[in-house]
Amino acid sequence: MPKLKIIQAPLDTKIVTSLRAGDKVLINGTIFTARDAAHLKFGTKPPFPIKGSIIYYASPTPTPPGKIIGSIGPTTSSRMDTFSPALLKLGLKGMIGKGERSREVIAAMKKYKAVYLVVPGGVAALLSKHVTKSKVRAYPELGSEAVYELSVRELPAIVAIDSKGNNLFA
C-alpha cells in the first residue's frame, strides 16, 4: 500500500515535487472551488491568490441549516482542461477532481510543477465532513458554481498525476 502523506494548502513546490502518482494524501488548509462557469468568468485572473493554490472542481449542494456546507464531491476535471495550463503558468499547484486530464494539462503540470489529485465521485456527503469552514469567495450569482473558499481537514485524495507526468490513468 502506498504511504499516507499529509499535505498543507497552499502547497509549496518542494511538497509538490515529492508527491508521486498513487500516493494517498490528506489535505489540510485552504482550497478554492471552481468549475465551468467560474473558470469562464475569471480566465487568468482568479479571485484568490493563485500562487501555490489548490482548485477543487466542485459545486456543492445548498448548505442546510446547522451545517458548514452541503454535499461536495468532485465533477469531471477534463471539462476544465482548456483553462488549466494558463493557471498552472500563474502558479496553480494542485487540482482536485475526477477522471483523466489532457496531454496539454499534463505537459503544463510537468513544466510548472503541479499535481492532480482525485477524490471518489459520488461520496459527497462523506467529503463534506472534511470541510471545517466555508464561505463564498466570489461570484455569488453563480449559485452552487460560485467560487467557495474552504478550510479542509484531512480531505482524503489520491495523487493521480504527479509533477513528473506519472499518470494512474495511463
Binding site: 461520496v123 456527503a125 463534506s128
Partner: peptide, 18 residues
C-alpha cells in the same frame, strides 16, 4: 468510502452526491 458515504447521507439527510 461509497458505503460509508451512504450511511452518512441517510443519517444526516445529506445528498449522496452533490
Amino acid at each position: 468510502q461509497i458505503l460509508q458515504n451512504a450511511v452518512i447521507a441517510k443519517k444526516e439527510k445529506l445528498p449522496i452526491c452533490q
